[in-house]
């Protein structure tokens, strides 16, 4: 007879621990991504809150159903064949195989459909027309009774007010997604899709393009600022004003390098509207559609060689520009507030 050493299986303990670390390490790392400025789990809008609660309820229901089914399979496999007569077996099938799932699915269906309802809209809602372009965002605010205002690569919305986005694209299919605010909606050339949202919490968040649209798809992001209504109105009024400041060396250089062939700075240069409107460029939170911080170095780098930041970008490079000139233009742009 062989004696069993109680510690002979202790070799599995370190293996189990390593295995747990191996599993839980990546899981914890992934869970860390469920928070922050770009996550549906950090909701700051009514629609994203619905999506989040839908996720939790569906996950809980799926867990309960999975455990229930596994338990039934285990129970059926271990129960003697004579445990239930024909009628008893049919009763189990009727309750657990037909009526139970039907009732559960009905409850989940009605609950999920109610969470998918769009917000009601009114005539006094703020409308924002957003166009996805390779690889930036054109935003035109259309306040009721007010002047329309065009800006780019940044979306600002008032907390507590319903905002209706009209989404389209002139080039390829993009997808407008602010995870903390609402679900993604495609921007399709020749078609306008609607998205109705209402922010519930002020703060700075992030949106992205969620449909592969070219080489710099991953660099097509934008800042989202949810503001208190009074602050928003003040900001929008400021945005409607043309750029301040008079003649400056930066403005002249901006024109002489041909930047106005694509960009407009209202009040200074009525240029083309092929590229982003730069009227209040310095008040934005980032450079290059959410790719670089709003610093002089970042602006200079983008002007010199935009493709180094965003491959495939339409803007030509200006590698020949002198250090002095690029610094002057960057200073000029950052002062546009």
């Amino acid at each position: 007879m062989t004696d069993h050493n109680p510690d002979q299986f202790s070799v599995f303990k370190p293996i189990s621990r390593s295995l747990l670390r191996l599993i839980f390490g990546p899981v914890l790392a992934l869970l860390y991504g469920c928070t922050g400025i770009q996550s549906t789990f950090s909701a700051f809008g009514v629609e994203a809150e619905s999506t989040r609660s839908l996720t939790w309820v569906m996950t809980a229901a799926a867990t309960v159903i999975t455990i229930g089914v596994l338990w039934l399979a285990w129970y059926a496999a271990r129960t003697p064949a004579s445990q239930l007569d024909y009628k008893g077996g049919m009763r189990v099938i009727f309750w657990f195989g037909a009526l139970g799932p039907t009732l559960l699915l009905s409850v989940l269906l009605v609950f999920s459909l109610s969470k998918m309802r769009t917000l009601p809209t009114g005539t006094d809602d703020l409308k924002i027309a957003v166009t996805g372009e390779q690889f930036w965002w054109r935003a035109r605010y259309l306040p009721v009774g007010g002047q329309s205002v065009e800006t780019a690569n940044e979306i600002r919305i008032p907390v507590g007010r319903t905002v209706a986005f009209a989404l389209t694209s002139p080039d390829v299919i993009h997808s407008f997604w602010i995870p903390g605010l609402a679900g993604k909606v495609d921007m399709i050339p020749g078609r306008t899709n609607d998205l109705v949202v209402r922010a519930t919490q002020a703060g700075v968040y992030r949106g992205v393009c969620a449909e592969f649209c070219g080489l710099s798809h991953a660099h097509m992001a934008f800042d989202v600022v949810a503001m208190e209504p009074a602050a928003f109105e003040q900001w929008l009024t400021n945005m409607a004003h043309p750029a301040t400041g008079g003649d400056s060396p930066g403005r002249k250089l901006f024109e002489s390098y041909g930047c106005s062939g694509c960009h407009t700075i209202r009040g200074h240069i009525e240029g083309a509207t092929i590229g982003p409107d730069l009227t209040h460029f310095g008040s934005r939170l980032s450079v290059g559609a959410g790719t670089l911080p709003m610093t002089l170095d970042a602006i200079s780098r983008f002007i010199r060689n935009p493709a180094s930041v965003k491959p495939g970008v339409m803007m030509p490079d200006f590698r020949e520009i002198s250090d002095k000139d690029v610094a002057v233009i960057s200073n000029y742009l950052v002062e546009l507030r």
């Binding site: 009905s106 459909l113 609607d194």
Partner: peptide, 15 residues
Amino acid sequence: ILFTAIPAFIFEDCI
């Protein structure tokens, strides 16, 4: 059939 019909009575628009 009931499941197919239910959304028509919950949604209030085409969006």
